[in-house]
C-alpha cells in the first residue's frame, strides 16, 4: 500500500523526529512510505484567520502532490482535519476540484486513526516504560473522532500505564495564532491543562498534535517542571522518543 506522508510544517521545522517516528510506524505496518519533497503547509493558519484565498492555493497544491497515493497519513489531527473536513469547503467553488479533494480527503488519515483502522503494525516498537497521560487535541477529537485510537495503540505497549487526567478533552489553549494574539488567555488555558497533567503524577504527557504539545511543554517548563516528558504519540509508539535525529 502506497502511503504519502504529509509531515506538517510544524513537525518539519520544530521536531523532525516525529516525522521519522511516523515513517517507522508506517513501515512496521507494512506500508511503502513516500515523502513528497515539495510539501509545505496545509494552509490552516491562513484559513482560520480568514485568509481563504491562500488556503485555496495551498489546497490545490496539496491535491497535486498527494492525489496519486493510496493513502495520505498525517501525524496531526489538526492538519488531517483541515484536509479531510475543511478542504472541501475551501474548494467549494470549483466542482471538479471539490470532487477530487473530497475523494482524497477520504483517503487522508491522522496517524493513530490510520494505524488502528487501515494498517495495524504487528507489534508496537515503543520502549517507553511507566505512567503517561493523554491529551485529546480538539480537531482530532471533534473533527475526526479520535479518542480511542491512541489509547488502543498505547495499550499494546506492555510497560505503559495510562493515567487519565480530568478534562483530557478540554482545549489546551493553543489554537494556532490564538496562542500569540490572546497570549494571556491562552496561557491560562495551558495552565489549567498543566495542573490536570501534574495531578496525574504521570511521567509523560502524550498527544497527537505538536502545536498543543509545544504549548503544554512551554507552560510546564515556565512553571519550573523540567521532568515531565512531553511526547508526540508517534514518538511514544515508535521508540524514537530519546535523542535526535
Amino acid at each position: 500500500m502506497r502511503v504519502g506522508l504529509f509531515v506538517t510544517c510544524l513537525v518539519d521545522a520544530v521536531r523532525p523526529r516525529i516525522g521519522f517516528a511516523t515513517i517507522k510506524l508506517l513501515e512496521a505496518a507494512g506500508c511503502e512510505v513516500t515523502v513528497p519533497a515539495q510539501q509545505t503547509c496545509c494552509g490552516q493558519p491562513g484559513y482560520n484567520a480568514g485568509d481563504r484565498k491562500s488556503a485555496v492555493a495551498l489546497a490545490r497544491k496539496f491535491l497535486n502532490e498527494f492525489e496519486a497515493f493510496d493513502y495520505v497519513v498525517v501525524p496531526s489531527g489538526s492538519c488531517a482535519g483541515m484536509i479531510r473536513v475543511h478542504y472541501p469547503d475551501v474548494l467549494r467553488d470549483d466542482p471538479a476540484l471539490l470532487a477530487r479533494i473530497t475523494a482524497l480527503g477520504q483517503r487522508t488519515y491522522e496517524l493513530t486513526d490510520f494505524l488502528t483502522h487501515i494498517a495495524m503494525p504487528e507489534n508496537i516498537p515503543g520502549k517507553f516504560k511507566g505512567t503517561l497521560t493523554y491529551h485529546d487535541s480538539c480537531s482530532g477529537l471533534r473533527e475526526l473522532n479520535i479518542y480511542n485510537q491512541p489509547r488502543v495503540l498505547l495499550a499494546n505497549m506492555a510497560d505503559v500505564k495510562i493515567s487519565e487526567m480530568v478534562e483530557s478533552t478540554t482545549c489546551c489553549g493553543f489554537g494556532g495564532t490564538f496562542s500569540v494574539k490572546y497570549g494571556e488567555l491562552s496561557t491560562r488555558m495551558a495552565d489549567n491543562k498543566c495542573r490536570h497533567i501534574t495531578d496525574t503524577h504521570a511521567s509523560a504527557i502524550v498527544g497527537g498534535d505538536l502545536g498543543c504539545l509545544l504549548n503544554i511543554e512551554g507552560r510546564l517548563r515556565r512553571n519550573g517542571d523540567h521532568t515531565t516528558r512531553v511526547l508526540h504519540i508517534a514518538e511514544a509508539l515508535s521508540g524514537l522518543d530519546e535523542e535526535a535525529p
Binding site: 520544530v14 516525529i18 500569540v180 496561557t187 495552565d191 504549548n215 507552560r219 517548563r221 515556565r222 535525529p245
Partner: peptide, 18 residues
C-alpha cells in the same frame, strides 16, 4: 511576546525534517 510572556518555546532541533 504573546507566547513567551507566559510560556517558554521548546527550541527546534536545528534541521528540518526534509
Amino acid at each position: 511576546g504573546g507566547w513567551t510572556d507566559g510560556r517558554d518555546f521548546p527550541a527546534p532541533a536545528g534541521k528540518t525534517f526534509r
